[in-house]
Design a protein around this nucleic acid. Sequence first.
RNA 1: CGGGGCAUAGCGCAGCCUGGUAGCGCACCUGCUUUGGGAGCAGGUGGUCGCAGGUUCAAAUCCUGCUGCCCCGACCA
Length: 424
Amino acid sequence: MKASQFILGTQRENPADAEIISHKMMIRAGLVRQVSSGIYNWLPMGKKVLQKVENIIRTEMDNAGAQEILMPMVQPASLWEDSGRINQYGQELLTFSDRHENKFCLGPTHEEIITDLCKNLLTSYKQLPITLYQIQTKFRDEIRPRFGVMRSREFIMKDAYSFDLDKESLERSYSNMKEAYVRIFDSLGLDYRVVKADSGAIGGSDSEEFHVLADSGEDLLAFSDKSDYAINAELLNELQEGQDPYSLDGKPSPDGKGSLKLKKGIEVGHIFKLGKKYSEVMNLKIQGEDQEVNPEMGCYGIGASRIVAASIEQNHDDKGIIWPKSLAPFAVAIVEVNPKKKDDIHKKCLEIYQLFKDNEIEVLWDDRDKRPGVKFTDMEVIGMPLTVIIGDRTLETGEIEVKGRQDEKPKLVSHQDLISIVKG
RNA sequence: CGGGGCAUAGCGCAGCCUGGUAGCGCACCUGCUUUGGGAGCAGGUGGUCGCAGGUUCAAAUCCUGCUGCCCCGACCA
């Protein structure tokens, strides 16, 4: 892709209404633009990153044997009456009527729809265990949206739902998903933790959250320094009646091993053992060997759009975003420096650009008629992992300047090593 | 929903107190000179001053109402 034809949308100044780093960076790097409170446009650069996140999730879901589907964003309110959640969910559920005065809502989650779907999709225990998932837009009418796409009203989520004949099988499906989650967050290159959590409005017996560690996180997590005990401090607080959660720092761990350490986290994933909560109330029955049973369900969410912001919270400097390799919108940039000095500069760029494309490397060639400094700063705020610099200085030497996002100065590499360096 | 703040060009802001019909920087367009870290000069495009009503000869400016956005709190995958 040539930068002259790409809608970069970078901005020099921080937006006045952004508070946290990731929000500022996402605006300045041209990833998103706000439409309304908690509602965003994703620009080409942001969409590329979002797609990377989605594809990592998709790959691991498929590897784990889950099957991708797509459910509607608009859901009949009657299903929410069936599950009894229409009142429990409250005003966060955005409802409206169609021209026939039928009530609908914008889906904040899909337990009702999937359970309803499975009532006629699943007919025999021989189809179990099964896990279905989707990557889709959710809408939750947050009381106070904030921090850019971090707490938005409309967001992209992967949600998966498992169906099992009995509790033992649910345990296997659940840990299968948990392992997939570990692979996903490893691939995303994030520093994260898994903690025990409150199952909240989704319900069920047991749940665990995946948190990206960051000081700007809205959740407080408690860890034992001697064991792998880890819990959302909210939950701990309930156990130990109304005390300031920060006062727990250094207290003995509830599991009796070591003492508690506190860290802030951004919740990016949440997995639940739902049990029969929805299958019973919505009367989902599957023919078993001898009798009909309500299947044991699990559900598994990952906030795809939130991960983009969380990654930036964790990986940035004062110049801009620092993408892990797996999320970078492009693998490498070519900065063309003062091509008017010599015709060969542009020719060299074209040659290297073609070389990258032939090797299926995602490349952004900054061929804009701009001064070098503008191009360098833009590539930095965008978080380009590598930048190849082509100018008259090194044109004759046969060597090529390559600068890593966090390097002070470019390194000289030989032409034939270029591909392996970018791929490595 | 309670408390606080803001709303003027794509972005960041001044002007408002003390009414006279809108300005600065960046961005954008044209030309020339420049060019290895956000260039200079010259010219130019772009604004229902959030909306509605009121006061006034005259409102971005004063008054009233409304809306939107941001922050703190309660809430939340």
